[in-house]
Write a protein that binds this DNA or RNA. Structure first.
Lengths: 190, 190, 190, 190
DNA sequence: GATGAATGAGCGTTCATTCAT
DNA sequence: TATGAATGAACGCTCATTCAT
């Protein structure tokens, strides 16, 4: 018997993410994915039991991975501002290296597919970021503003920075990165 | 019959915007719009020659209007920071009062429909904002960072603030507005 | 605008009944029906909102009609045995003239479509037949056996007789009809 | 490995019959059968070369067996009416004990699979029953009606009786059995 | 201008069957 | 022999759009 090809599963996932990145959700057609991966449309159903399953599985995987990765990073012992910056830079890099995946998640969140993701995954929050903000507040370095609001704004800031780098308006080099970090830091610092 | 027609056209546009706000782009069905406006699907084609035309026309109109409206506002003579704040508050209010329209534009921008909007409309930028930033830089009050970048970040900040108000995490009252303004101002100020 | 064609609806219904008669339920393909009626498959959905709807609508209509027709017939004042025979002959004729429709109902009853028929239609019973049997029992002419059983057997008898006529083993003429009636009558008579 | 294979083949057959009984013909999916027998769908094709082959083989086997079984029974020397009744009771019992198999045959008969059964099997008739009827006619006990017709009616009668028992409207006890036999006997007796 | 009917193009999905091991 | 993977050929259905009045 033929062996199931894990590479094929990954190819399907990557192609789906790429299509969502390029054309948004409306552009995801099972037949289209199949053609790109060079398999028959029906073969897709060997790996995912429906389009909904395909998309929500990808979203679930991505959310899990992102949470893990960010949580496992950066437990370094540094002065607060430097630590904050290190994390900031880490996220920028992560966002750049995974822009398609990030875009996928952003789009899923404002689509009906979001409701198909298991509850406990759906509410994954980087509690890590919240901890970081708390630490800053305790040291009197961060504005006394609700964490949800601060992290939402920092998130928007980050996303926009990544977009700017993506569109070549910014470069992934020390100078630009410093500039962008300073904008973010000044916003939240006390 | 100019009057009657124009009303119907507007009804179609408003309903389309409302549906996109409620269900996202995937949910826009010509028949659905028609039913909501209480006309036949075929009548839609009297007013717009296709679905693409309907959506890109709405997007074009909205982009034009937004640019106009903001430009015609607030030429007041105030100290710079106050003027900046007044504009900031104006945009917040505008965003809240036109959240469906803003959502429509946001969604169009990441969809294939965006490419159907005439080039010159697509790139409309509030040169007004750029002027405001220039004025601040001349007075040494604003960081010496590229205007495109600053306006992009301020835009992201603004959008996020509107979302937070929309989701009741913030209130449209002086205290919260002041807090949010301070975050933005601190980010860009020198 | 084009006017909806009642004839088209009927053509769809008749074609569906004919296909079920010829090939059973497994043979009912929307595209096939459409081709036979010379319309596009999608046009079917103008008249019936799904395959389930098509089949259960037909079943519902047939059940209603059959009940009405048989109930409106034969309230004649005749000696019991003659009345019984008249009804018997009426049913034979009805079955022959509507063999496809009868076959449709028989097949629906042992298919999942039956559950889609409205409750009150599903349980339509020719209470008329039950009344007839009661009358016979009162006169001591009919065996004292449960009505449900008697009517089930008479139904099977009838169906079989129709099949035999259909397959040319019997003829729809007085002699054969009399013979068959006698078999039925002898079975139930006291 | 003859034993193991034969068991698997039988398991496939029994499962198929059970599924047809439970869900009708439309419900028979190769994958479904395979899962129930706990083999792979492809293994089914080791035993039967196609779905058509599976179903028509089963039907053929059943038809052959039924004919054989009934023929080997009941050559007892009894007064005609008692012999007739004994056979009647035998068939009732056989039908009850093999209701799934009977249902399978009934359903095959009104499906396209029937045409795939070899001609000589398709027309198997219990010549035995015909002999029984002839014997009755010779003794002047049975109506002088064509054997094909009489046996068809008796068959319908029998099937209906089995259905009634199956649905608990009748009980497999002496009283009910007697009643039903009397109905059948009265129908055909002279 | 307005509309109900009609439809072609395409979509997601199923499933009997074959392939490759 | 046994089987998981793979697939072609359908199928039911949707929907933007056009037709005919």
């Amino acid at each position: 018997m033929k062996l199931k090809d894990e590479l094929k599963r990954e190819a399907i996932i990557n192609e789906t993410i790429a299509i969502v990145y390029a054309k948004g959700f409306a552009g995801v057609k099972m037949a289209h994915i199949a053609k790109k991966v060079d398999i028959s449309p029906s073969t897709l159903y060997v790996y995912f039991k429906s389009k909904d399953d395909l998309i929500s599985s990808i979203a679930t995987d991505l959310l899990k991975n992102i949470t893990n990765i960010s949580q496992n990073q950066l437990k370094q012992d540094l002065p607060y501002k430097l630590k904050f910056k290190a994390i900031w830079v880490f996220y920028i890099n992560f966002g750049i290296n995974n822009r398609k995946e990030m875009s996928f998640i952003t789009q899923v969140k404002q689509s009906p597919y979001f409701d198909m993701i298991p509850e406990h995954i759906r509410h994954l929050k980087s509690s890590f970021i919240l901890d970081l903000l708390d630490e800053g507040k305790q040291q009197g370095l961060i504005k006394d503003v609700d964490n949800t609001i601060l992290s939402a704004l920092l998130g928007a800031f980050l996303t926009e920075t990544i977009k700017l780098i993506d569109s070549k308006l910014l470069q992934l080099q020390e100078e630009d990165i410093n500039t962008m970090f300073l904008l973010a830091w000044d916003a939240v610092k006390n």
